[in-house]
């Protein structure tokens, strides 16, 4: 299996679970020109990121090309050890990926 595009870290911060995610993605805006060919690189960026804890959505992020390459995301929510975190993303070309993790376990 190809390596996942998502790195997900979770940490218990005294009653709140911190979720950090790093997604490997080029995030092309569609405005940048390729220096070699002079042609525009077609737009390819993540449009939606969904984070669920135990099946309930805790964060939905809608992104545009104004988010940096290899996007990073960090937030906290009220949770506990053992929660199942699922993060999935979709981009404008129809590609997607997801990862699942249990809080407190590596």
């Amino acid at each position: 299996m190809a390596k996942s595009t998502i790195k997900l870290r979770t940490k218990d911060k005294g009653g709140k679970i911190q979720v950090k995610a790093l997604i490997t993605h080029p995030m092309h805006t569609g405005l940048v020109k390729d220096k070699k060919t002079g042609k525009k690189i077609p737009a390819q960026y993540i449009t939606e990121v969904l984070v669920e804890a135990n099946g309930k959505p805790v964060l939905t992020a809608n992104w545009s090309g104004s988010i940096s390459k290899n996007p990073f995301l960090s937030f906290k929510y009220a949770g506990k050890e053992g929660d199942k975190i699922k993060l999935s993303w979709k981009d404008n070309t129809g590609k997607s990926d997801s990862i699942e993790k249990t809080v407190g376990k590596k």
Partner: peptide
């Protein structure tokens, strides 16, 4: 060129604080 960068919608229990990287 497209100013809107991101929209985050918080679910139950999520703290309204977000860290990310912009272009």
């Amino acid at each position: 060129p497209t100013p809107l960068a991101a929209k985050y919608t918080f679910g139950e229990g999520a703290a309204p604080s977000i860290k990310s990287r912009l272009k």
